[in-house]
């Protein structure tokens, strides 16, 4: 049984067609790597699955049940959680408020800052992320630290379907390993379905069970990691580019 299935999803922005006809599926305990050029529509697809964009066509099934996602909140209530490419941190808020943004712990009407602070420290320590003070404003963090916060808040959200949009983008080698280890841990738990977007194929192949390529608004390739290689994936992407250039008469 698939935890998440996407059928015939299309999404247009005015005249621009970002997704034409996307079909995709991920099972529990499975990690799907989603590859594609810049502007291929990967982030758009993620934002459709997490309830941020409404698809113009197609449907989404969670545990084989068709769902119409009304909002990010609604998707979240179904266990779908996202690390966005643009990270979505609020500069003016502290690290720990960012980690619990829109799922704050409270005592009555008041925020339970002490608990959130403690949990934030614990989670970051568990992840091996080095942030000396969770009360500083997010504006003061480095790109990699921001990334770590964004990942931490989704990973510790009890999500059952986790969407990661380029979680390794701004990461140094050590930090990237932390994230990849986290993904591996989640996968080992066996109850989380994970979609991860990456531009570094070597890293993607390391954690993914399957790889799919999104080209011109469609999934053009979908195969178990064991049956492909960095060289083949690179060839496919470049071939697509060359083909399109030739077709354009360039």
């Amino acid at each position: 049984m698939d935890a998440l299935r996407v059928e015939g999803v299309a999404k247009r922005f005015g005249a621009l067609t970002a997704l034409t006809d996307v079909n995709l599926h991920v099972g529990r305990g499975e990690v799907l790597g989603l590859l594609g050029d810049n502007g291929a529509g990967k982030s758009t697809l993620i934002k459709v699955i997490c309830g941020f964009h409404r698809p113009d066509a197609g449907r989404i099934l969670v545990d084989e049940v068709p769902v119409v996602l009304r909002s990010v909140d609604h998707a979240r209530s179904l266990g779908i959680d996202t690390v966005y490419q643009d990270l979505a941190l609020v500069n003016e808020l502290s690290v720990y408020h960012n980690m619990f943004l829109n799922r704050e712990h409270r005592i009555g009407p008041l925020l339970n800052n002490r608990l959130m602070r403690r949990l934030a420290e614990e989670h970051l320590r568990e992840m091996g992320v080095d942030i000396p003070d969770v009360t500083v404003e997010a504006a003061k963090l480095s790109g990699g630290q921001r990334q770590a916060i964004a990942v931490a808040r989704s990973v510790y959200s009890a999500a059952r379907i986790l969407l990661l949009d380029e979680p390794l983008a701004a990461m140094g080698a050590k930090e990237a390993t932390i994230i990849l280890d986290l993904v591996a841990d989640l996968k080992a738990r066996g109850d989380v379905a994970i979609v991860i977007i990456a531009h570094n194929y070597a890293q993607a192949l390391q954690v993914c069970d399957r790889v799919a390529i999104l080209q011109q608004g469609r999934i053009t390739f979908d195969r178990p990691t064991a049956e492909t290689s960095v060289a083949e994936l690179t060839d496919l992407m470049v071939a697509d580019y060359r083909g399109r250039r030739r077709a354009a008469g360039g």
């Binding site: 909140d73 996202t82 979505a88 609020v90 003016e92 943004l101 009407p109």
Partner: peptide, 29 residues
């Protein structure tokens, strides 16, 4: 003052003004 600094409403008000896209992505209405 309490509402702005110690409640969810205050936190979300700051988020909306500080990073509207981020707040939306976090699921804040």
């Amino acid at each position: 003052h309490l509402v702005l600094t110690r409640t969810r409403w205050g936190l979300h008000t700051i988020s909306v003004g500080g990073n509207m896209l981020g707040a939306t992505e976090a699921g804040i209405r």
